[in-house]
Deep mutational scan, measured.
Amino acid sequence: GKELVLALYDYQEKSPREVTMKKGDILTLLNSTNKDWWKVEVKATANDKTYERQGFVPAAYVKKL
């Protein structure tokens, strides 16, 4: 199945390749080969529509579930 990670801290994206997350968010882990930056998929809701974004977050800010 898919691997999930838990956001340990809030993170505000600093570039278009990154994604914003809030502490407590559960994210889908896409790639953890880089030890510093993990690629995740974030589900977000805006205007009653759910959309998914993929991007990088600092590996130290998340932990595998």
Rank of each mutant, 00 (worst) to 15 (best):
K2F: 13
K39I: 13
K14R: 14
V5R: 01
A7K: 02
L65S: 03
L4A: 06
D10F: 04
L27H: 03
S15Y: 06
V57Y: 00
R53N: 05
D25Y: 04
Y9G: 04
A7E: 00
T50F: 10
Y11H: 03
V19P: 00
E13K: 13
D25E: 10
R17C: 15
I26W: 05
A46G: 11
S15T: 11
T28C: 12
K64A: 07
T28E: 09
E18R: 05
L30V: 10
D10P: 05
I26E: 03
A7V: 09
A60T: 11
Q12P: 05
E13C: 12
A59D: 02
I26G: 00
K64D: 04
T50K: 09
G1N: 13
D10W: 03
D10M: 03
K64L: 14
T45L: 12
Y61D: 02
D36S: 11
L65Q: 04
K14F: 05
L27G: 06
E41C: 14
E18Q: 12
F56C: 14
A59P: 04
T45C: 14
D36I: 14
K43N: 11
S15D: 10
L30E: 02
G55A: 03
K23A: 12
N34K: 06
T45V: 13
A44F: 15
Q12L: 12
L65V: 11
D10L: 03
D10H: 05
L6F: 08
K23Q: 09
F56T: 03
R53D: 03
Q12Y: 14
D48Q: 09
L27Y: 08
M21H: 00
T45I: 13
E52D: 14
V5S: 02
P58Q: 02
K63D: 05
G1K: 13
N34L: 08
P58V: 03
T20V: 02
L8D: 01
L8C: 09
N34C: 10
I26Y: 06
S32H: 06
P16C: 10
Y11T: 01
A44N: 12
T45D: 10
K14M: 11
V5G: 10
S32C: 14
L30W: 04
A7Y: 01
D36E: 11
F56E: 03
V57Q: 00
A46H: 14
K43F: 13
M21D: 00
A60D: 09
R53E: 03
N34A: 07
D10T: 05
L8G: 01
K39C: 15
A46D: 13
Q12S: 10
P16A: 12
A46Q: 14
W37N: 01
K43M: 14
W38S: 01
V62I: 07
N34V: 05
Y51F: 12
K63S: 10
A59H: 02
G55Y: 04
R17G: 14
D25P: 00
T33L: 09
L27S: 02
Y51T: 11
P16E: 11
Y61N: 05
A7I: 03
M21Y: 01
L8V: 06
T20Y: 04
A59G: 03
K14Q: 13
E13I: 05
W38F: 06
G55S: 00
Y11I: 00
Y61Q: 05
K22I: 07
D10Y: 04
V57N: 01
G55N: 01
K63V: 15
V62K: 02
V42K: 15
P58L: 05
D25H: 05
T20H: 04
V57S: 01
G55R: 03
